[in-house]
């Protein structure tokens, strides 16, 4: 079985690298955007200020995370191979599987820290805004400012980012960073329109096209499933079990990609 201690050791080094490479500076950008928006929207006022901050905050958490996941994810393995730092590393008692899993865990840790700090900042800004309004003004809001239900959307964003990272890592075990980035972004975009494939058979007559659409619907990562931002912002009900099934779906997909990455990587020759 995989050695967890070794994996953790590799992961912490990845985290250290991202800190030294100033990746976490994006948190500053996030804070500036959020506070700037809060100030500007406060000037405009329309009663929907808290909704806008929530929309913006959740979208920014997802977008910053996506950029980190893709741009670091594609370099995780490729950089080590290209610069040959992997040669001395793999001569140590470190299996290639542990190497891959450690690299993944390290970026996952970086992303998690990022999301946690951003979420805390979002709640801070929302708390500040909450204090600016009277109870009567608040009555028109769809959800309270400090709604804990928003954390469900954050949780799914985390799973989505972990899935993006696994995709980027998988591609980077065998292709160049440019291609990996293009493929990862491509899958991300297509995955957001995945739901449109579901009912495709209702509108096409050819059974081949319908079958193809159905196969793609099941095989492509369904990123749209992780997006419940509008539901939580409007405090709409979410089907019971939705969260659990979606998280399980994400984790199964991640496991598949990591298995694939390990399979590809353990078979590679480093010329």
């Amino acid at each position: 079985m995989a050695d967890m201690r070794i994996i953790a050791h590799v992961a912490i080094n990845v985290f250290k690298e991202s800190v030294r490479d100033k990746v976490l500076y994006n948190l500053v950008a996030f804070a500036v955007i959020l506070m700037g928006a809060a100030y500007l929207i406060g000037q405009l006022t329309a009663g929907q200020d808290v909704k806008i901050i929530k929309d913006l905050g959740l979208a920014a958490i997802g977008t910053f995370g996506l950029l980190i996941a893709v741009f670091i994810g594609i370099g995780l393995v490729w950089k080590e191979v290209e610069r040959r730092s992997i040669y001395s590393l793999l001569s140590k008692p470190l299996g290639r599987r542990e190497f891959i899993l450690g690299k993944y865990a390290g970026l996952a840790l970086t992303l998690l820290v990022n999301v946690v700090v951003m979420t805390a900042a979002l709640y801070l800004v929302l708390g500040y805004m909450d204090a600016q309004f009277t109870e009567e003004q608040k009555s028109v809001w769809a959800a309270p400012a400090l709604d804990a239900g928003m954390l469900r959307a954050v949780a799914l964003i985390v799973v989505e980012l972990l899935l993006v990272t696994a995709i980027a890592l998988f591609f980077s075990t065998f292709s160049s960073p440019f291609l990996s980035a293009a493929l990862t972004f491509g899958l991300w975009v297509i995955g957001h329109f995945n739901a449109d494939l579901r009912n495709f058979e209702n509108i096409v007559e050819s059974p081949v096209a319908a079958g193809l659409a159905r196969a793609l619907y099941y095989l492509l990562p369904n990123f749209a499933a992780f997006d419940i931002k509008s539901q939580v912002v409007y405090a709409l009900p979410i089907a019971p079990g939705y969260l659990a099934v979606t998280v399980a779906y994400g984790l199964a997909y991640i496991a598949l990609l990591l298995t694939g990455s390990v399979l590809v990587f353990t078979r590679r020759d480093f010329k």
Binding site: N222, Y234, A248, Y249
Partner: peptide, 17 residues
């Protein structure tokens, strides 16, 4: 993945919004 995606699709259809 396929079975979870199937379940997920059903739940999503049940979500009102």
């Amino acid at each position: 993945i396929v079975s979870l995606q199937h379940t997920q699709g059903r739940l999503e259809a049940a979500t009102p919004d």
